[in-house]
Design a binder for these strands. Structure first.
Lengths: 221, 221
DNA sequence: TAGATTGTTAATCGATTAACAATC
DNA sequence: TAGATTGTTAATCGATTAACAATC
């Protein structure tokens, strides 16, 4: 059974997660260079901007193809477009926000997602006082309608900003609805089947690891 | 000059960053177990909760001491207290929030930091309409007062939630004021001297790496 | 004491970096 | 063509895991 999966990538070398996680940073840097009018950049220059070795950049890119020219470097615009294509950033992804408390409202009002192809198409909450409200141009729907809302709006990504006690339950329901990408803001790591991706936004963990260095007078990296 | 640093850890083996970053998760899990009345847990049980191998947990802990009993496991309460001590979570850390826009307000109103020993003691902004406002029980100060505010409140951690164009400038000023731990919410990676720690909260990067798996029909991990 | 689980060493795995032939 | 930089292979580094003696 499991051995079936071995054939599913059609002989492509599996790309390490850590490599995929760097690509959006490459996209960001290239976008910035482009806006500055830079047309060509080599791995050395990109490495300086990104605080990464040139070798790593070339290695990372080599998982996906050959985008540079020897003796010259990379065409910024071309590499950017290739990476956007690889990351699936050339299409629009519909996003639902579950949980419209203070944090959910901040997320819904944040204009930073839309330019990058993420369209907030639905907001859901369980609080009767909140349902029906207009937040960031969306009418808050009851969570009971989750399945229907996800189908109707073709939601493929969910942002979860509900209290910790409800998080796993909401995530379970999202998974049942076929959502395969979840951005979770609750301080908990929800369990999901392995075909579903979860990313946790957990500032408290970040703070708690920094205090180690504050308390011990050393520095990370 | 640099060789001086070699002596500063007094022969202690340097703890890898990745190990330090897992400790807060251990603390969280142990806290939960304690609240459930569990008194003893072995590395196997902790591993299941944390989705980590038992060997890794034992290895991680071994950087800091011997906290278990062979044949028995770990006393939950004791291990928790030891880890809190190691992470510097037994003392209160004063935190300043720079940037009181929508996001800054959400952070200032979020009750989740305080229980863990992080005390929000100051809020700063540059917008004259915002300065003087009461937000989450704090009066917003002008950023011009940064140095003074940090001194007066003994701030050791800053949370930065200002627009991207101001982020590096604010971070530079914080570093000048002696702040050694910065939690940054802007979609940029500020450059700091190596004795300063920065953690970036960057949900857009998380979304952009998940779309890779959505677009390519595979799954991370 | 017998059984269980730690703490630690050694083996494995995977990611990063260095080096260089290919080639623009 | 000469010089520069890529793409890729091999070497290195570091983190994870397995194994087991120590010991509760």
């Amino acid at each position: 059974m499991a051995s079936n999966f071995d054939h599913e990538n059609h002989g492509r070398t599996e790309v390490p997660d850590v490599v995929v996680s760097r690509l959006p940073q490459y996209v960001r840097t290239l976008t910035q260079l482009l806006s500055e009018g830079v047309q060509i950049a080599n791995s050395q220059q990109l490495g300086e901007k990104l605080q990464i070795t040139p070798a790593q950049i070339r290695k990372d890119l080599s998982y996906f193809g050959r985008f540079g020219k020897q003796g010259r470097g990379y065409n910024v615009n071309h590499l950017l477009e290739e990476l956007r294509q690889i990351l699936g950033l050339t299409v629009t992804w519909n996003v639902a926000v579950v949980g419209v408390g203070r944090l959910g409202r901040a997320i819904l009002s944040y204009p930073g997602f839309t330019p990058d192809g993420f369209q907030l198409v639905a907001a859901l909450d369980d609080n009767p006082d909140v349902v029906g409200q207009d937040v960031g141009g969306l009418t808050v729907q009851p969570v009971a309608q989750l399945n229907d809302v996800i189908q109707r709006h073709e939601v493929s990504i969910a942002i979860v900003a509900v209290p910790i006690a409800y998080t796993q339950g909401v995530v379970d329901r999202l998974v049942e609805c076929g959502v395969k990408a979840i951005l979770n803001y609750a301080p908990i790591m929800p369990q999901v089947p392995e075909h579903v991706n979860v990313r946790n936004i957990d500032p408290l963990l970040s703070l708690q690891s920094m205090t180690y260095y504050l308390a011990n007078g050393t520095v990370s990296e």
